[in-house]
Simulated assay, not measured.
Amino acid sequence: MAANRVTEIKVAHLHPDQVERYEQLHRDIPAGNEQHMQEAGIVSLRIFREGLTLFMIVESDLSLALPDRVIDHQLEEEWHRMTGECFSKTWQDASEIYQLPKEGSRA
């Protein structure tokens, strides 16, 4: 794995009546939001759902982040407002408890 690559795992929970709305929002993400993520160096972002629990895996390469990127704060705030209404518990970092192969060992 490249030295600049970072993987984050996050967990959140949805309100029972917001599952379909949350999934619909993610079927039609504004292009500007995706551009912001790519310009921040995010190379992969995946969200999984099991019942009301969401799991997000974010892989970033800090060397790909644009240092002078321009963020549309209004677009970002609107996205966070819309998706945030769906959460009963917002995104929290998950702790890694095991890795195979162990970092630094030969595969």
Rank of each mutant, 00 (worst) to 15 (best):
Q99P: 01
I47N: 01
E78W: 05
A40E: 14
L54F: 08
S63E: 13
Y98A: 15
L62C: 09
V70I: 15
R49I: 02
V70W: 08
D93A: 14
P67R: 12
V58W: 00
H26P: 01
S88M: 08
L54I: 04
Y22K: 10
V70M: 05
L66V: 11
H36F: 13
Q24M: 11
D61E: 10
Y22I: 06
E77R: 14
Q35P: 02
R46H: 05
D61W: 10
H73M: 13
M82T: 15
I42G: 01
P30S: 13
F87C: 05
D72K: 12
L75Q: 15
W91V: 09
L54M: 07
A31H: 14
D72E: 07
L52E: 00
E85Q: 10
Q92F: 08
Q74F: 12
R27T: 06
D72H: 13
L66H: 11
E23M: 06
M82L: 12
G32L: 14
M56W: 05
T53H: 08
V70R: 14
P30K: 12
P30G: 12
H80Q: 11
M37Q: 12
R49S: 06
L52I: 06
F55V: 07
V58D: 11
F87S: 01
L75P: 06
D93P: 03
D72M: 05
R81W: 00
L45F: 07
D61F: 00
W91K: 10
Q35S: 11
S44G: 03
G41T: 07
F55T: 13
R21Y: 15
G41K: 03
I71L: 06
G32Q: 13
H26Y: 04
E78F: 03
A31P: 00
V58Q: 07
E50H: 03
G41H: 10
R46Q: 09
S60T: 11
E85A: 00
V43H: 10
G41S: 03
Q99V: 02
L54G: 05
W91P: 09
E77F: 10
T53V: 02
M37S: 12
S44N: 12
L25G: 01
V70P: 01
E34M: 11
M37N: 11
L62W: 08
R21E: 13
E96F: 12
W91F: 15
K89Y: 06
L66G: 13
I71F: 06
W91A: 05
S88D: 04
G51R: 10
V58S: 11
R46A: 08
A94N: 04
P30D: 10
S95C: 09
I71K: 00
R81T: 04
M56C: 09
L45D: 02
S88P: 04
E77V: 13
E59M: 02
Y22P: 03
E50Y: 07
G51I: 10
N33D: 09
F87V: 05
F48V: 02
D72A: 11
D93L: 09
E23V: 07
Q92V: 09
F48T: 00
L25N: 04
N33E: 14
Q99Y: 00
I47H: 05
Q92I: 08
V43C: 03
D61S: 08
Y98I: 09
F55K: 12
Y98S: 08
E34I: 15
Q92E: 14
R69Q: 11
R46D: 00
T83H: 05
E23Q: 01
Q92D: 15
E39F: 03
H80K: 02
S60W: 01
